[in-house]
Computed example of a mutant assay.
Amino acid sequence: MRILLTNDDGIFAPGLEVLEKIARTFSDDVWICAPAEEQSGAGHSLTLGRPVRLRQHDERRFSVSGTPTDAVMMALRKVMPGKPDLILSGVNRGANLGDDVTYSGTVSAAIEGALAGIRSIALSQVYAAEGMGDRVPFAAAEAWGAKVIAPLLGLPFAERTLVNINFPPIEAAAVQGIRVVRQGFHDYARGSVVEGTDPRGYQYFWFGLHGIEHTPGHQTDLEAIQDGYISVTPLQLDLTHNASLAQLAERFA
Rank of each mutant, 00 (worst) to 15 (best):
Q39M: 15
Q39L: 04
Q39C: 14
Q39R: 11
Q39P: 08
Q39I: 03
Q39K: 12
Q39H: 09
Q39V: 01
S40F: 00
S40Q: 12
G41D: 12
G41F: 11
G41C: 13
G41K: 08
G41W: 13
A42F: 14
A42Y: 15
A42P: 07
A42V: 13
A42E: 09
A42R: 08
A42W: 14
G43Q: 04
G43D: 04
G43I: 05
G43N: 05
G43T: 05
G43Y: 02
G43S: 06
H44I: 09
H44M: 13
H44W: 11
S45R: 15
S45M: 14
S45G: 05
S45P: 04
S45T: 14
S45H: 14
S45N: 14
L46A: 06
L46K: 11
T47A: 08
T47R: 05
T47C: 11
T47K: 10
T47E: 02
L48Y: 11
L48A: 10
L48C: 05
L48D: 05
L48N: 05
G49E: 11
G49W: 12
R50I: 08
R50C: 03
P51T: 07
P51V: 10
P51A: 06
V52N: 10
V52K: 14
V52Q: 10
V52W: 06
V52P: 06
V52I: 15
R53Q: 13
L54I: 15
L54V: 15
R55S: 08
R55F: 14
R55V: 14
R55K: 11
R55M: 03
Q56R: 15
Q56E: 11
Q56S: 08
Q56H: 02
Q56Y: 01
Q56W: 01
D58F: 09
D58A: 10
E59Q: 11
R60S: 10
R60G: 04
R60L: 05
R60V: 09
R61S: 13
R61H: 10
R61D: 07
F62Q: 06
F62K: 07
F62G: 09
S63E: 14
S63G: 11
V64K: 03
V64L: 11
V64S: 02
V64C: 05
V64F: 09
V64Y: 03
V64W: 00
S65V: 08
S65F: 00
S65D: 10
S65K: 11
G66I: 04
G66Y: 01
G66H: 06
G66P: 01
G66L: 01
G66M: 03
T67I: 01
T67G: 03
T67N: 01
T67L: 00
T67W: 02
P68W: 05
P68N: 05
P68M: 02
T69K: 13
T69Q: 11
T69L: 13
T69I: 14
D70K: 01
D70A: 03
D70W: 03
D70Q: 07
D70Y: 01
A71P: 03
V72Y: 05
V72W: 03
V72T: 05
M73W: 00
M73L: 15
M74I: 08
M74D: 00
M74V: 15
M74Y: 14
A75R: 04
A75I: 11
